[in-house]
Amino acid sequence: MSVLQPHDGTTEGSFYLAAELGTTAWGLLPNAASRPVLTVESGTVVCLDTTSHEGILPDQGRDPVKFFAEAGIHERDVLRDAVELAASAEPFDAETRGPHVVTGPVAVRGARPGDVLEVEVLRLRRRTDYGVISNRHGRGALPGEYPVPAPGHEDGLPVPAVSLVAHVAPDGRGRLPVGDGRDVRFPLAPFLGIMGVAPATDAPVHSVPPGAHGGNLDIRLLGEGARLFLPVQVAGALFYAGDPHFSQGDGEVALTAFEAPLRATLRLTLHSDASTRRLASRLAGPYAETADHYLVTGLDEDLDEAVRKATRSALAYLSERCSLPGAVALAYLSAAVDLRISQVVDRVKGVHVCLPKTDLHPLLTGAAPAAEPQTGEAPSTELTR
């Protein structure tokens, strides 16, 4: 494939945001004091580029051209936005900032706290045919065991990060070189690890831990066709996206998954009806919908507590949307529903509950999970500009 540089190729929707210095933030998420780079009406389709943090970080040399050259990738195939950000004066302090680059924020006119912003993922296009999977800084699911020190490593010194460059094979599958001439092949399923709204604080917001604002949820099911619902925290919502993945396994145990840049086409729709506001208040966090499931989340630094929160959210959803008594809902969850670990590496662990639509459609009461847009106009369906 050809590399999808900023402003190159076709874009979709009413607006396009390249991942440039004026439209991105590195390591910190937008907060209540942030100024939007774009303001849109509810129902607008926005196309935005996202930049992967892999290859630009200081422990990788903060020079993506040199970093990727070591994996045989030519300078012309390295994204300009990655090169410009790495070479900029943008500060990076691993003690106070996360690694992620986010594009935005985008304000949605009329959004107010208590409303819900629906983010519909219409299309995700790969911007490169390579990316990186990293295990670094003693993090991941096995801190202290991986990364394994290289022979001759001196005790007491930090173990260098292990960053493996993976590729997209001609058949469209992921290809991870083993190092002995063989490859591990696996399916791709692109998604945005970070989609969120600004939290109601003026303090800096670290990009790593997810929360009620969404952010670094790392739910791999949020690919094309998914809809994420985010409780609005501040006026305008101030939506942003980043942390693009070509694929990820539930858990993301190494620390990162197949991190690689995407061009995302998203529809942003505001909901302010009483039913949706009440559901969002009961769940107190992000929820989502795919072709097959309704998803609710549980987030906590303790994985056991994240499981408890996810289960309570599922009970609240089943009560609100299906009028199920608690004891019946809990029995149903235990008999038929999967609780999946989104990730265990983002300080705040994530669990998502997958509620099957086929089971619940006959029981739905009241408003559907996605109410009509509150603008008085039909959402834009324009996809090509």
Rank of each mutant, 00 (worst) to 15 (best):
H167S: 09
G174N: 03
H271C: 08
A32M: 13
V205S: 12
N31F: 07
V205P: 04
G251E: 11
A335W: 11
R347P: 01
D218A: 10
P187V: 04
D304A: 07
I341G: 08
T23I: 04
V3Y: 09
D49M: 02
H53I: 12
R136I: 10
R277F: 10
E75C: 08
R175I: 02
P325Q: 12
P151L: 05
T23E: 00
Y16M: 09
D359T: 15
P147F: 09
L339N: 09
L238C: 09
T290F: 05
D171F: 09
T24E: 07
G55P: 06
P91G: 03
D115H: 11
N135G: 14
D63L: 14
P105T: 00
R267P: 08
L228P: 00
P204F: 03
L333K: 15
L192R: 05
T51A: 15
H74K: 12
G55S: 01
V119P: 11
L283T: 06
L124T: 00
A94D: 02
E12P: 00
L355G: 03
G211K: 05
E259M: 13
D115C: 11
G179L: 12
G211D: 00
A71E: 03
L28C: 04
V296D: 02
H245V: 10
A19Y: 01
P325M: 11
I133Y: 04
V232M: 01
L355A: 04
L339G: 05
D129R: 09
E289H: 11
R340M: 14
L318G: 08
A367N: 11
L142D: 07
S323G: 02
V148C: 00
G104I: 01
T128F: 03
M195C: 14
A336L: 08
G55R: 09
Q60V: 01
L299M: 10
V353G: 10
R127I: 00
Q248C: 11
T11R: 12
E90P: 06
Y240N: 01
S88D: 02
S272E: 13
A226Y: 02
A235C: 12
